[in-house]
Amino acid sequence: MTALLRAEVLKLRTTRGLYGYLIVLVVLTGLGAAGQVSTAHLFERGDPAFQRDMLSQSTVFAALIALLLGILSVTVEWRHGTITRTFLVTPRRWRVLAAKEINGFLLGVGLAILGLVVAIAVIAPVLSHDSASLHVDGAFAARVAEILLAAALWGALGAGVGTLIQHQTGAIVGAIIWVLVVETLLAALLEWAGWKGIADVLPRHALDALAGHEAGLSTAAGGAVGVAYVVVFAALGFLRVRRQDIT
């Protein structure tokens, strides 16, 4: 399995697509963090809770890109027909899918770390100018861990979504529209109908709760629901691919 995982990482590293996404991630995260810091009051910026929330808000881009790259890691193989060679090397298909799930998970962690570094690089000089500092304590560390886990689950979820949908444009556009539009509208509708409990367990709501910028579920519950989504999509993807004809 480590060989397959290393192969997945190599696949990712050896195309230019990844680097484009990394640039987008750095730029968007930097702009987002700068926006939040500049619109906050001086006393807010020194507040530990503000600092943690600012990190949560700034890493939404890392989470979204983890989802997209997770999807792409699978759909690109169907799009270019390389899934044929992949399954020739590893005919036990579940092993390929498992490697892609783990790859998506690790990818999420890596992207979130990059997002956190950029966000901290933006806020640190401002705090220093304020003669304040970043409150690195237990709560801070816990929040960082939650942010990393949330992005990791987004990446793994992407691998499952890509395996299930396979059509690259359909999967990518569908995922973006769901996350940015459909889920928001659906949640508003559910809340209006008095079913906020259901809105809270929608995927973005649950994972945002885990990452600390959505009020609905507790962190632990958000994480549990997020894991459930990853497992369900991975299982559906496996069922789709298990006996699929690769032609």
Binding site: K11, T14, V76, H80, G81, T82, R85
Partner: peptide
């Protein structure tokens, strides 16, 4: 079928 990703060497 295509052997390789077009963007990879």
């Amino acid at each position: 079928t295509a052997e390789a990703h077009p963007g990879r060497s």
